[in-house]
Amino acid sequence: MSLDPVTLLAILGMALASYGCRLTGLLLGGRLALAGRAKAALDAIPPAVLTAVIAPTLLATGWPETLAGAVTILAALRLPLIGVIATGVAAVVVLRMLAA
């Protein structure tokens, strides 16, 4: 059971970022009411960040990943999350075999 100091620092930093958000909301209570453009910007953050994290994998890795991503997006339009994962994994395994 090893605990690397740099890894621990990263984990504690991420834990602080997570709990900081939850605690801020708890302490603000009902006083926070964003509207208009400010609310639109804040609402956009989760999908924008999640997209940004995977975009290079999808668009700048290779054609098997790009094609598997397209298949997965189609699956995401009609399947529950587990089905989306299964479709994506199956697609990338088959396409990578074809590419090899």
Partner: peptide, 25 residues
């Protein structure tokens, strides 16, 4: 380990908890 990038990414993805927590509080 890119600590600053990891913390920033975590904060950005979890910023929604500020509003969610404020609504439930």
């Amino acid at each position: 380990v890119p600590i600053a990038a990891l913390v920033l990414s975590t904060f950005l993805i979890n910023a929604r908890y500020i509003l969610m927590s404020a609504s439930l509080a």
